[in-house]
């Protein structure tokens, strides 16, 4: 991408009917580290790659719990993501306070999408530079959505976003038909396998990734797995790897 005459502010149209500033914000999402989400009839799983700015630094947090029933994986400007995250937590909390029930994931997503859209519509605002995979369980079952800086939001059975996510998406497109009846553990394995396709050096460790799981049944809580808790999943992934089909990416 390079500068042109129509990208100095968000509210200027290009003659081809595009908003370049908004598209630049979408680029920020593509440069963020990858995140993957997928769902079955009973569960929805998020997996994300974490980056560290240097060998000496800690890894950024990529998956956040929003409420007891839902969580989010971020790609792009993490700082913008945290702001949206706080907004979404507030919305969930307010809903719980007034209605004593979890906020439907679709409603939550349309609220952040509306918020993002406002930033594409005001000359003095900057679009959020973050894309989100929002996963949760509500009265309608497990749901997975992706939002982006333009204010769009789409529902998915499986989706990947961020740097080199095409590789993960290719894997998901090949296998998504088996997800509906898959177990939670199988979903996690699919998520990690897809994520691995997008990882630098194709390597996942307990440090550079995390998992988020929301499901009906059990206690219905969104669970965030980080660090050592991931070890069994990664071990299993390594064990299965020999038999897995080679991916052409």
């Amino acid at each position: 991408m390079f500068r042109n005459a129509y990208d100095t502010d968000v509210t200027t149209w290009s003659p081809t009917g595009r908003l370049h500033q908004v598209e630049y914000a979408m680029e920020a999402v593509k440069q963020g580290s990858a995140a993957v989400g997928l769902r079955s009839k009973t569960h929805v799983v998020l997996a994300a790659l974490k980056r560290a700015p240097s060998e000496l630094a800690s890894f950024q947090q990529k998956i956040h719990e929003l409420d007891a029933h839902c969580g989010v994986a971020l790609s792009g400007l993490t700082a913008d993501g945290r702001v949206l995250c706080r907004y979404m937590r507030g919305e969930c909390l307010n809903h719980r306070f007034v209605y004593e029930s979890p906020l439907a994931v679709s409603r939550l997503v349309s609220r952040v999408a509306d918020r993002s859209q406002v930033c594409t519509h005001r000359s003095y605002k900057r679009p959020y530079g973050v894309g989100m995979l929002v996963a949760g369980v509500d009265a309608t079952g497990p749901r997975l959505f992706q939002t982006d800086p333009s204010g769009n939001a789409y529902e998915y059975v499986a989706q990947a976003m961020g740097a080199r996510s095409q590789a993960a998406r290719t894997y998901l497109e090949r296998t998504f038909e088996t997800y509906a009846d898959a177990t939670v553990d199988a979903l996690c394995q699919h998520a990690l396998f897809a994520l691995k396709e997008s990882a630098q050096d194709n390597e996942l460790t307990t440090k550079n990734c995390s998992l988020g799981i929301a499901g009906m049944g059990d206690d219905g809580r969104f669970k965030l797995l980080d660090g050592e808790a991931l070890k069994p999943y990664l071990d299993k992934l390594a064990a299965d790897d020999g038999g897995a089909q080679p991916m052409d990416t």
């Binding site: 719990e65 937590r89 909390l93 719980r96 306070f97 965030l224």
Partner: peptide
Amino acid sequence: HKVLGMRQQVFAHNHGG
């Protein structure tokens, strides 16, 4: 009870669960 429950939730969010 609801206000305290909500504030406890906010605290947990801000302190890594």
